[in-house]
Design a binder for these strands. Structure first.
Lengths: 242, 242
DNA sequence: CGACGTCCGAGAGCGGTGCTCTCGGTGTGG
DNA sequence: CCACACCGAGAGCACCGCTCTCGGACGTCG
């Protein structure tokens, strides 16, 4: 490709204008994404808005899916950043939990199309490349840290209250992979597989609640979205023992 | 439109072949939906498969969105029917809960593209018409009935265990609309607003768990999808007091 | 029976899309 | 200073949803 004679070199004028134009493209694409949604995001329309030929865009993004991938990663990072800044590690567990949940929902309501791009149905032939994983896991990490800190502090009582018999058999191997264990805060005596399953379930519940609201699946069932969300997340925290 | 001289009249040969061709179109569309997904569902490809001109399809469906609406309603009905047949009202609450959850997930795994069409990001300019609501609410009704029966039988202890202070103020108006109350089984002394919020939250959690799995958001975090789902739904039932 | 009206399929066509290729100009590094 | 890499523009391909028109087939009614 290009010669990289030292570990990092001063960007030439060519490279500078290239990254600049790339940023303009992603900005225009993000604007159009916010307006018409991901499915209707047209590469030609982006080119029109920028006043260049559609074929010129392919010098910067080899395909429309690559441009979408860029937007996806940026979206994950934006959402993850808001979740991280919303978490005050010195607050009480339930307040931390509620604050992060509210922040995630607020971001989703402010960027509905981006949220749909991140968490809605995957686009037809498109499969998320591996480099989206770090950005995608950020908000899950935040929620996992909140629950993990609470568990280490003695909250989140053991799950096996009812001593429910495992239906599939006697053995009880772990279902949470070691990678996820590392992401969720590593090993700790107070963190067993059941607690981690509960953390995954909690994140799934938050995601389900926000998506239900955003995708219109409880339009006739809930009067006040804000208050319902607070009530539901409080109830979820209470049920988890937070 | 057509003369309806009596309450229902014998279908003419024209009408018979029309409904027949309509069924062939929806069948072919469903096949293509299962193969390539909703976003890539091409009206022209459906016409090709049926050996007719693409313009002829517009005699039966005025637009692609109308065809999608037909598929959406059919999908909701299919999923709702499996959920209803999976519920055995004589079984124990937790078994009923688990059976319905497993049935919903099994249908979703068997028809991923249809599930994505129902519960994924809404298509760009498309807004679900009102006549999808009855079919769409069927599975929620089933889950609501399971929880409602349990509550009426004395399970689902009152939510206010911690006597958590309402952050927004003293008053506590209902957030669940009367329509949803009617759908979820009507009024009952054991069913207050908190229980109904919990039912909505439960359905959201089930949806979130299935969607997370189906949309690939926990590919690296869960080893065995079946066992994780059972564990998570059991944990959810236990947390709800089921 | 025949005429009429209604329905329906086919074809052409419009504007849109993603994507490819080629060509000519321009800036940059050797 | 020159060659080479880069880049923008245009034409073009195949596909898409959708519209219009036309001709044929059907059924109904005079």
């Amino acid at each position: 490709m290009f010669t990289e004679r030292h570990h990092h070199h001063v960007p030439t004028a060519r490279e500078r204008v290239r990254t600049e134009i790339t940023a303009e493209i992603t900005d225009a694409a993000r604007r159009q994404l916010a307006e018409v949604g991901a499915a209707a995001l047209s590469l030609r329309a982006v080119a029109r808005e920028l006043g260049m030929a559609s074929s010129a865009l392919y010098r910067y993004f080899p395909s429309r899916d690559e441009l979408l991938t860029r937007l996806i990663i940026d979206g994950y990072d934006a959402l993850g950043a808001t979740a991280e800044t919303a978490d005050d590690p010195t607050a009480a567990p339930r307040e931390r939990w509620l604050a992060v949940c509210r922040a995630v929902r607020a971001w989703a309501l402010a960027h509905p199309h981006e949220y749909a791009l991140l968490y809605g149905s995957p686009v037809p032939g498109y499969s998320a490349p591996q480099d989206t994983v770090p950005s995608a896991s950020r908000v899950g990490v935040v929620l996992g840290r909140v629950l993990g800190d609470a568990a280490r502090a003695g909250a989140l009582p053991e799950a096996g209250g009812g001593a429910l018999p495992e239906a599939g058999g006697g053995d009880d191997p772990r279902v949470v992979t070691p990678e996820a264990v590392a992401i969720l805060g590593g090993e700790h005596p107070a963190l067993d597989d059941a607690v981690r399953v509960r953390a995954l379930l909690a994140w799934s519940s938050v995601y389900g609640t926000i998506s239900f609201e955003l995708f219109g699946h409880l339009v006739g069932s809930v009067a006040d979205g804000d208050r319902y969300f607070d009530r539901a997340m409080t109830e979820l925290a209470r049920m988890m023992g937070l």
